[in-house]
């Protein structure tokens, strides 16, 4: 009985043939919908900060330098490539690329910084009209994140403490 099983198992193995992929020499192409590293397009971005408010990892920071200039910084350190930013972006300025080999020993390689020129409406920038769900639940408008120390500032906090938060990630560059 058991010999028969062994034979059957041998047949399974022989039928399978060779399946090992030659990675990393050649990578298998990823499907169309693959969620790789998000790429921010400064030309399309209107600076609505919807991505920053919806990022589960809090890896997109926004600060307004003055009335006209808004800095949007994507850090990518603990980004999980969930694609929520690309979902909520009203201008489709964020695309989930097909890049997945993003290992680096310089974290700055993944960082993207957008210097955005905002139109002069002081209240809302060029305010975006969000088409779909959860409209009421999202924070909109001006944000004040701590770009220098690379951390997301909770809405309830009205001021910035000088020392770095305990959980800030320090990566030697």
């Amino acid at each position: 009985m058991s010999v028969l099983s062994k034979l059957k198992e041998a047949v399974i193995c022989l039928r399978a043939g060779r399946v090992t992929l030659p990675y990393p020499a050649t990578a298998r192409p990823v499907p169309e919908k693959f969620r790789g590293r998000p790429i921010f397009d400064a030309a399309k971005c209107i600076g609505c900060a919807g991505c920053a408010s919806n990022c589960p990892s809090r890896e997109i920071l926004v600060v307004d330098l003055c009335q006209e200039i808004r800095i949007l910084q994507y850090l990518g350190r603990r980004c999980t490539y969930c694609g929520r930013c690309a979902d909520v972006c009203p201008e489709k300025a964020i695309t989930m690329s097909h890049e997945f080999e993003t290992a680096t020993n310089c974290i700055g390689d993944i960082r993207q910084r957008l210097d955005l020129f905002m139109s002069t409406c002081q209240r809302c920038g060029r305010c975006f009209k969000e088409p779909s769900h959860l409209e009421q639940l999202k924070q909109k408008g001006y944000r004040f994140d701590d770009v220098q120390n690379e951390r997301w500032v909770l809405r309830s906090q009205a001021y910035l403490t000088s020392e770095a938060a305990v959980d800030d990630m320090k990566i030697e560059i």
Binding site: A16, R35, Y81, C82, M96
Partner: peptide
């Protein structure tokens, strides 16, 4: 080895549907 080989196409189809082999990021509220 064989069981994992048989499993691999499932991972690929999941990647095709959701954009990732695992962590499908499937649901939002509603």
């Amino acid at each position: 080895m064989q069981s994992w080989r048989i499993r691999e196409p499932i991972m690929w189809i999941a990647e095709k549907i959701s954009g990732n082999r695992k962590t499908y990021a499937l649901c939002v509220i509603g």
